[in-house]
Amino acid sequence: MMTLGQQFITIGMCVLGTMLTRFLPFLVFSDKRPTPKYIQYLGHALPPAIFAMLVVYCLKDVEVVSGSHGIPELIAMVVVVILHLWKRKMLLSIAAGTVLYMLLVQTVF
């Protein structure tokens, strides 16, 4: 079992690692100097790729070969997309998709 001091250091290391990744780009590319063209390009090109990566990240533990084969996830996501294309109401799309998913995993699958 760790001492209290060791616990503080362990938590501190988590904070340090996290904050380094959050603050580093802002420290390296300050407001005073113009940001390099390549970094500007990345700033615009990365977000769509990141959002796609985050969707995959959310689905990373879905069991495709066993269990429910990812069918409830697929159904709920299709409904979210269709509903959103139709109404363009962010909260509605998210709420409906989540409620549907909960019904599917709790009652059907």
């Binding site: 290391m13 690692g17 996290t18 990744t21 959050r22 780009p25 590319f29 940001t35 990141i50």
Partner: peptide, 21 residues
């Protein structure tokens, strides 16, 4: 602990680059 934190949180580097402006 520090290295694991860096690895798990590395995606924030991308967020920072996107949010510079």
């Amino acid at each position: 602990t520090f290295l694991v934190s860096l690895m798990i949180q590395a995606r924030h580097l991308f967020y920072g680059i996107a949010m510079l402006d």
